[in-house]
Design a protein around this nucleic acid. Structure first.
Lengths: 263, 263
DNA sequence: ATCACGAAATGGTCAGACCTTCTATAAGAA
DNA sequence: TTCTTATAGAAGGTCTGACCATTTCGTGAT
């Protein structure tokens, strides 16, 4: 029985700062921050919880939905509502970032640059702190890359896992989550293009150079290798589709990046 | 009349991949990505939009609420539902990050480190790209700091605005948004503690050093100055409350940061 | 012409019902 | 006895309809 103790929820709506559903969100969020709701916990059924909190079921559902939208709760029809289980690295939903980029007309160049900044920071930290087991994981993924030089799809899997291994070795879950969020947005764009096989062998060797820098606990080198790798990856991606841009856009003067495709 | 053309919404639910409300989210999100919904636009009334999309009003409301939770839409009772207007820098809601940190037991040290990485990256870019007007804004905020050495509250305002000015000068709105998100989480924690006046004069001078490095287009120096500044700020914050930690926690071995207070 | 009032518009909440999906328990077969 | 299958309950998803709270804007009085 993983259900939380129902008496925790006795805190009915005391005052109304804003709307009632906003109050529900505040209540639930507070329970999580206070540790009364832990990952994997199942919330009481909506009908019961609504009574406990003193609100109607639609209002409670509105609050639950708000927290589900940001990836904190997860409702499964017929099963219940759960606090999201965190197996693996912590993660943030990428859709808010993606939507924000669309609303502001951000360019893919800015997104690439953000990823570069995060990955460089993470690589530097990993070079300072990586433990033996984490080193081994990275090395294994690189071996997997070399073994998949003829299979771009498989290569990509090892590529992604290597970067996650580096992030894990950094020991900073906040940066890891941010990095994955940005990477996910770029991945969702990239997946639309045909996966034209770029030079996988060169890519594998760049990854190996990153690994060696981390292995030798050389943060500066790790950052530099990571930067080289990502700049080259970006360039390769930009060359893949030069058929969409009708003319050179010139409304944004703050970026000297190559790609100015609006997201 | 800022209402969007209603015929855009004629795209009723064609197929059901998941739940109906999820389909609504997909529809609305697609309109934003495609630029059919622009910042500041008002959506049709819920009752009308529900008919247009072929769903009931509660279902539509569920979808709207999901997008409102991630800061894309905003509903005002009596007025309508609007696509969030983006005056000023693009921003992301910080509560998902805050909740994620709580769920995973992340430490404030990790959060500080993430901020440091982002601010350093931003400072480096600002040093490469800052234009004259942006330089002027930074300089003004520094002047404001020196003018508020006796008024910690006012000083803090200029402090925050200086960092935002640097971010704006970086020309990367993605990094700016991420930086602000992390900074907001830290600010919400810090606001709970008494704002014991640390050495404001020294702080102002560190900001001035950051500014000078940016002014001279010296990215390395800008990064280094920013790092110094933030490390010192973190240290000062940690010294402010040493009365809460009962004993030295030792369950997380991946961080050699000072503060290991769980968020 | 200006200001105050009120009606219409619009999102927020509630109630109750029904459907869809999942889970767990119990019955039946190997 | 053990494994498989069927069934009933539980839980979230959706719908209809109504009413409340707030905002907006037009109309009327001053």
């Amino acid at each position: 029985m993983t259900d939380s103790n129902p008496n925790i929820f006795k805190t009915v709506v005391p005052e109304r700062r804003g709307t009632t559903s906003a109050e529900v969100v505040i209540q639930l969020r507070g329970m999580i921050h206070r540790g009364e709701l832990r990952p994997g916990d199942r919330l009481p059924p909506e009908r019961d919880l609504a009574k406990l909190l003193g609100v109607s079921r639609p209002t409670l559902r509105a609050g639950i939905r708000s927290l589900a939208a940001v990836g904190v709760l997860q409702s499964r029809q017929g099963a219940g509502t759960f606090v999201v289980e965190s197996d693996g690295p912590p993660s943030l939903d990428s859709s808010p970032l993606s939507l924000m980029a669309s609303l502001h007309g951000c360019t893919s160049g800015e997104m690439f640059e953000a990823r570069r900044a995060l990955e460089m920071a993470v690589a530097g930290l990993a070079a300072e702190r990586a433990k033996g087991e984490q080193m081994a994981t990275m090395a294994e993924e690189i071996a997997g890359m070399y073994a998949s030089l003829e299979d771009p799809e498989q290569f990509l899997i090892h590529d992604v896992r290597f970067h996650q291994a580096v992030a894990a070795a950094s020991g900073n879950r906040i940066l890891t989550a941010l990095m994955n969020m940005v990477a996910k947005v770029l991945f969702d764009i990239r997946i639309k293009t045909v996966n034209r096989a770029t030079d996988l062998k060169e890519s594998a060797e760049m990854h190996r150079r990153i690994y060696r820098a981390i292995r030798e606990h050389n943060p500066e080198a790790a950052r530099e290798m990571m930067q080289d790798h990502l700049i080259r990856a970006q360039r390769g991606w930009e060359l893949e589709d030069e058929s969409d841009l009708p003319s050179t856009s010139s409304d944004n003067d703050a970026n000297d990046n190559g790609a100015s495709r609006t997201l």
